[in-house]
C-alpha cells in the first residue's frame, strides 16, 4: 500500500522517474538562487524576469514549434534583455526598478500570449504557461541537469563576494571591484534557472520552485549556509510530494501545479510553525509578554 503510493509510480513509469529527476535538478540549483533573490529583496524581480522570458520562448515556438533549442535561446535572450533594460530604465529615469520591471513584465506577458496564439492552439498556450513536467524528454533533462551543475559551480565560486554584496555592498566596493561582475553573473544565473524551469513548469510557475522553498527555509534558520541547504531540501521534498499527490489524484490534478502547491504547503507550515519568527512561536512570545 505504502509502496504503491510512494515508490510504485516511479518504479513503474518512466515519465514519473523523468519528472522526479527534473524537479530534483530544478530545486537543487533554483532554491539556493531563490534564497539569494529573497535576501537581496529581489523576489519580485525573479517573478518579473520569469514573465519576461515568455515572448522570447514564444518567438522560438513561432519559428520552430516545440523545439527545445529555439525556445531556450529565445527565452535566454528575452530574459537577459529585460534584466538589463529594467536596470537601465531605473538608472536613467525617475522610475524605480520595481515599477520599470512591472511595466516590462506586463508587456512581455501580453506579447508572449499573443505570439503563441498566432500559431498555436489553447493547449500549446497552456503548455507554455504551465509547462508539462510529465513530458520531459532527454534534451530537457540534460538541459535541467546542465543548468543545475553550472549554477551550483558558479554559486560556489562566487559565494563570498555574493554574500558580501548582499550584507555590505559598500564594504565589497572598498576592498574589491568584483561587485558589478558578481551582480551580473547572478542575474545570468537567475535567467538560466528560469529558462530551465520554464521547460518543466512553464513561465508562470517556474519562479515558484525558486521563491517558495527559499521563503519557507527563512522561517527555520538564521544562518546563510543552512538556509541554502534547507531551501534545496524543501524544494526536493515539494517536488517529490507534488508528483506523488498528483499521481494519486489521477488526471484531475496536473503535476506542475501540484509541485508548486506542495511547495506552498511547506511554506504555509513554515510560516505557521517556523522557529525563526513563525506565527505560532510569535503567539507564544506574545502571551509571555502579556503575563
Amino acid at each position: 500500500m505504502l509502496y504503491d503510493l510512494f515508490i510504485g509510480p516511479f518504479a513503474e513509469f518512466d515519465f514519473m522517474r523523468r519528472a522526479l529527476v527534473g524537479v530534483m535538478a530544478l530545486s537543487v540549483s533554483g532554491a539556493p538562487i531563490g534564497v539569494f533573490l529573497m535576501l537581496r529583496r529581489m523576489s519580485l524581480t525573479g517573478d518579473a524576469m520569469a514573465h519576461a522570458i515568455l515572448p522570447g520562448a514564444a518567438l522560438g515556438y513561432l519559428v520552430a514549434g516545440f523545439s527545445l533549442p529555439a525556445m531556450t535561446i529565445g527565452g535566454l535572450a528575452a530574459g537577459f534583455a529585460v534584466a538589463l533594460l529594467a536596470g537601465a530604465v531605473a538608472r536613467a529615469t525617475v522610475l524605480k526598478e520595481d515599477a520599470s520591471l512591472a511595466a516590462f513584465y506586463l508587456i512581455s506577458l501580453a506579447l508572449g500570449v499573443t505570439i503563441v496564439s498566432l500559431r498555436g492552439s489553447a493547449i500549446d498556450l497552456l503548455h507554455v504557461l504551465f509547462g508539462n513536467v510529465l513530458a520531459l524528454d532527454d534534451g530537457v533533462l540534460i538541459l535541467l541537469a546542465g543548468v543545475a551543475t553550472v549554477s551550483l559551480l558558479a554559486l560556489a565560486a562566487l559565494y563570498r563576494p555574493l554574500v558580501l554584496e548582499c550584507v555590505d555592498p559598500g564594504f565589497l566596493r572598498s576592498v574589491s571591484r568584483s561587485g558589478g561582475f558578481v551582480h551580473l553573473t547572478f542575474l545570468a544565473l537567475v535567467v538560466l534557472n528560469l529558462v530551465a524551469g520554464f521547460n518543466a513548469l512553464g513561465t508562470l510557475l517556474a519562479v515558484g520552485m525558486m521563491m517558495l522553498p527559499a521563503a519557507a527555509a527563512r522561517f527555520w534558520t538564521a544562518d546563510i549556509t543552512r538556509l541554502l541547504m534547507l531551501a534545496a531540501g524543501f524544494g526536493m521534498l515539494s517536488g517529490y510530494a507534488g508528483l506523488v499527490v498528483s499521481y494519486a489524484a489521477g488526471s484531475s490534478l496536473p503535476a506542475g501545479p501540484a509541485v508548486i502547491l506542495a511547495a506552498g504547503v511547506v511554506y504555509l507550515l513554515s510560516l505557521l510553525l517556523g522557529s525563526q519568527g513563525g506565527l505560532a512561536r510569535r503567539a507564544l512570545i506574545w502571551s509571555h509578554l502579556e503575563r
Partner: peptide, 15 residues
C-alpha cells in the same frame, strides 16, 4: 549594511 541578513558575527568580522 543589511542587518537582517542571516549571517553570524564571526563571518562578518572574517570579511
Amino acid at each position: 549594511l543589511d542587518r537582517s541578513f542571516p549571517i553570524h558575527v564571526y563571518d562578518l568580522v572574517a570579511m
